[in-house]
C-alpha cells in the first residue's frame, strides 16, 4: 500500500493544493481527480466512472466565501483509491467519500485558521518594512506548508486504514449496499438544491422547470440544453436592454412628455416603442 499512499497523497497535493496555487482552475474536482487516481493505479476506466458519479454528488459543494460542506478532492482521491484496490466501483467509493470529505474539510479549516492564519501579521510587517523578496518567499512558503501537511492525511489514511477499510467494506450487508446504491442516485439532489440556492430568483425560476422537462421528456443532451439556454438568455438580455434604454429616455424627458400623469406616460412609452 506504500505506493498507493504516496501517489494518492501527491495527487491530492497537486490537485487540491494546485487549485489554490493556480487560481481555482477546478483541478480539485472529482471529475478530474477520479480519472487521475485511476490512471495512477492502473484502472482509468473505473476512475472515470467513480469520478463522474462523485462529481454528480459533490456538484453543489463548492467553496463560496469560505462556506462549504465537504472537501470533495480528498474524498474523491481516497474513495477512488480504495474502490480500485478493493474492487467494487462507485458503490464502495461513495460511502467512504462522504465521511472522508467532511473530515477533510475540518482539517483544511484547521490548517487555514490555526497554521496559515498566523502568517497574516507577518505579511503586514514585511510589507511595512518593504521586504518584497521575503513576502514572495512567504507567499509560496505558506502554500508548501499548508499542502504538505494536508498531503499527510491521505498518506496516513491509506497506509494505516486499508485493513480496517477492507474489513469494513466486506462487513457491509447486502441490504445496506443496495441502500448506498440508491443513495448514489439521490444524493445529487442535495447538490442541485445548493446550486438552486445560488441561482433561484422569483422572476426567473420557471426556467429550472423548463430545463427539467426538456431533459425528462425530450431527452435533450446537456450540450444542446446549454446552447438552448444561451439563446434564451441572449434574447432576454436584449429585450431587457431595450427596456432599460426606454426607461432611461422616459426619465430623461418626463416634464415635456407627461403633463397628464400616468396616461400620458403610457403614451410616450408606446411611441418610443414604435420609434425603436
Amino acid at each position: 500500500m506504500l505506493y498507493e499512499a504516496i501517489i494518492v497523497s501527491l495527487i491530492v497535493i497537486a490537485t487540491v493544493g494546485g487549485a489554490e496555487l493556480l487560481g481555482m482552475t477546478m483541478l480539485n474536482r472529482p471529475i478530474v481527480i477520479g480519472p487521475l487516481v485511476g490512471l495512477a493505479l492502473g484502472d482509468i476506466q473505473s476512475g472515470v466512472l467513480i469520478g463522474a458519479s462523485l462529481e454528480a454528488v459533490f456538484m453543489g459543494v463548492v467553496n463560496i466565501g469560505g462556506a462549504s460542506a465537504a472537501e470533495p478532492g480528498l474524498a474523491t482521491a481516497v474513495g477512488t483509491a480504495f474502490a480500485i484496490t478493493l474492487g467494487g466501483g462507485a458503490g464502495v467509493a461513495l460511502p467512504l467519500a462522504i465521511p472522508i470529505g467532511i473530515l477533510g474539510l475540518q482539517v483544511k479549516t484547521l490548517l487555514y485558521v490555526g497554521v496559515i492564519g498566523f502568517f497574516a501579521p507577518v505579511f503586514d510587517r514585511l510589507a511595512a518594512e518593504g521586504k518584497e523578496r521575503k513576502i514572495v518567499l512567504l507567499h509560496y512558503g505558506a502554500w508548501v506548508l499548508q499542502w504538505g501537511l494536508y498531503g499527510l492525511l491521505p498518506f496516513i489514511g491509506i497506509l494505516a486504514g486499508s485493513d480496517a477499510i477492507n474489513a469494513f467494506v466486506k462487513a457491509i450487508p447486502q441490504v445496506i449496499m443496495n441502500g448506498l446504491n440508491i443513495c448514489g442516485g439521490l444524493l445529487p439532489a442535495v447538490g442541485m438544491a445548493m446550486l438552486l440556492k445560488l441561482l433561484w430568483d422569483k422572476k426567473i425560476y420557471a426556467f429550472f422547470f423548463l430545463g427539467f422537462i426538456l431533459v425528462a421528456y425530450l431527452k435533450l443532451p446537456l450540450v444542446a440544453l446549454a446552447v438552448l439556454g444561451a439563446i434564451i438568455a441572449v434574447t432576454i438580455a436584449q429585450r431587457d436592454y431595450q427596456l432599460s434604454q426606454l426607461t432611461k429616455k422616459m426619465n430623461a424627458a418626463p416634464a415635456t412628455a407627461a403633463p397628464a400623469g400616468n396616461a400620458g406616460q403610457m403614451d410616450t412609452e408606446e411611441e418610443d416603442f414604435f420609434d425603436e
Binding site: A56, M59, P188, M192, L195, L196, L198, L199, W200, I204, Y205, F207, F208, F209, L210, G211, F212, I213, L214, V215, L220, L222, L225, A226, L228, G229, A230, I232, A233, I236
Partner: peptide, 10 residues
C-alpha cells in the same frame, strides 16, 4: 437563466 435551465436538466 442559463444556470437554472442547466440545473433543471441535470
Amino acid at each position: 437563466i442559463v444556470g437554472l435551465i442547466m440545473v433543471g436538466g441535470m
